[in-house]
Design a protein around this nucleic acid. Structure first.
Lengths: 208, 208
DNA sequence: AGCTTAGATTAACAGTTGTTCATATATACT
DNA sequence: AGTATATATGAACAACTGTTAATCTAAGCT
């Protein structure tokens, strides 16, 4: 009588449905993907889907919650953030690197595409984006940057503005990488741009 | 026998179709908008649409080309750009202001939403985004920034990296404004953020 | 062995989709 | 007045949509 979380029975069909849907939604969007297409991608008939999900939208919801379950920034208490921020550039480097890794991770890339396609049409996706991506990251970064100011590592300035100036190019880079991948164009060069951004940004704020 | 551009006959039904489609596409996406919905929004029956457009996709194409027909950055010969760039911060201010105005322009906002929804699914939209938005703006900005470096107004650095660091937050701001508007949330505060970004960026690069 | 149950199938449903066609109307040109 | 042209309509189409119901299958438990 153990909690099965819905993912232990049979051959993990539920997991397969989510994966297949993610792939298809990221390629053709929610409206552009039929339940028949999902079913045939899994290798079952459409009606069998309804043993695992109440309806098509329930699959959407499942994926929508997964998008932000992998935190973009590792949430940690502000005391720890301030400690790490003392290392200056390395703190920012670690952050940029995490986003870079996500940009080149296959699963994360699919989720990002899915989000980009659907975010304008689903209020709860927008809410999650604001809370989990924007707000959390801006808070994390501005806390760190503020600590650096107090330690006199960087010049004094509104930490929120600074945080956005650091975050936005990372987001823009990730967006462009997704565009490139959608056309199966090479993305190798983008990896360097993360470093270039970091170097430029650090030169922009460091005390000299 | 004058060129009518397809927009003079009758009561301008073709124009109405494009406007209605733009509105609906920006709200529900291409797949989520039926030709019946477009027709009823215009005030005609579905079959009448086919007197003006070969099919639904032709409407899409019409709108897709309109997105980038309003140039984000005023294209001008590089000699003129260099002249204007001598004014330093004012050059960047003018650019940021143009994007700010577009972000708060109703029609432009619809086009932006439409683009965001569909860009991942349409190669020609991605191509136009890269060419008309990214490349053109980066070239414009980096040309100006390079001129500023030679005039010793700003510190020396890779102009492309600098240009991206200036452009990305503007794009990110515009994206967030669109998200806010989709939820009918206030966007007044965002106007100041354009200025804050400009001030921070100028402090980051100016010679002191 | 018998019972329960998760998960698959086949078939069908009612509604919507983009598109076509034959037809009507009204305007503009000769 | 008569003809051509542009634009509207109503009806129909085949294909596809999400969802449901009845039925079968195979594994797990007692």
């Amino acid at each position: 009588m153990s909690e099965n979380m819905g993912f232990v029975k049979g051959q993990g069909t539920k997991r397969k449905i989510v994966d297949a849907s993610m792939e298809l939604f990221a390629q053709h969007g929610y409206k552009g993907t039929s339940v028949r297409a999902i079913a045939s991608s899994v290798g079952i008939k459409q009606s069998a889907l309804y043993n695992h999900f109440a309806n098509k939208e329930a699959i959407f919801m499942q994926i929508a919650t997964e998008i932000f379950s992998t935190p973009f920034a590792t949430k940690s208490d502000s005391a720890l953030v301030e400690e790490q921020a003392k290392r200056g550039k390395a703190f920012l480097s670690k952050f940029a690197n995490e986003i870079r890794l996500l940009a080149f991770d296959k699963r994360s890339e699919k989720l990002f595409r899915f989000m980009m396609i659907e975010i304008m049409q689903h209020a709860q996706l927008r809410e999650q984006f604001r809370a989990r991506f924007h707000d959390d990251n801006i808070e994390y970064l501005s806390t760190g940057l503020f600590a650096m100011m107090r330690a006199n590592l960087i010049r004094s300035c509104d930490p929120m503005v600074m945080a956005e100036a650091f975050l936005a190019p990372l987001f823009y880079l990730r967006f462009n990488i997704s565009l490139q991948k959608a056309d199966e164009k090479p993305t190798a060069n983008y990896s360097k741009q993360f470093e270039k951004h970091l170097d430029f940004f650090w030169d922009s704020i460091k005390r000299n």
